[in-house]
Design a protein around this nucleic acid. Structure first.
Length: 136
DNA sequence: GCCAACGTTGGC
DNA sequence: GCCAACGTTGGC
């Protein structure tokens, strides 16, 4: 299983929106590095959902439920990708960006190192640490 | 509201 | 193919 982190602005699409839909298309990613991560997603992978903007925290998780497929909203001739994800749950406690930044073990997170990237991979160790922090 | 970090566009 | 100008994202 792989672990991922996706960012969203809750004003435009929040974890609550995903929860109410149950399952939805994750599309609209227009960055090559992010696209390369989506390409590697597999059904069953765990996805952490991060709210940017005011909240700046990981708020919940989702599961990948499809293989990557061409983004239906991509312009003609453009090869962007989308996947279907299903709401998995809210974290017991959101893990804030400042918590992540002050954690010795999470300094290599792309969230910290490359603040504009909207889809990134996590190591199992990083995922475990985040789950532990969310339970604390 | 500002600014850093990127990505994209267009002139040359 | 280089690079300046501009737009966008997102933290502060």
């Amino acid at each position: 299983m792989n672990y991922w982190l996706i960012k969203t602005e809750p004003e435009s699409y929040s974890l609550e929106d995903l929860k109410s839909k149950g399952e939805d298309v994750w599309d609209g990613v227009r960055n090559h590095q992010a696209r390369n991560f989506i390409e590697k997603m597999k059904p069953g992978d765990l996805v952490f959902v991060y709210h940017s903007g005011k909240q700046k925290a990981l708020v919940g998780t989702a599961k990948v439920v499809s293989a990557p497929y061409p983004d239906p909203k991509a312009a003609d001739g453009e090869k962007w990708l989308a996947v279907d994800i299903r709401y998995n749950g809210h974290l017991p406690n959101p893990v804030t960006l400042s918590q992540i930044k002050t954690s010795d073990q999470l300094q290599d997170l792309l969230l910290v190192r490359q603040s504009r990237l909207s889809v990134m991979s996590l190591s199992k160790q990083e995922a475990d640490i985040l789950v532990t922090m969310a339970d604390a």
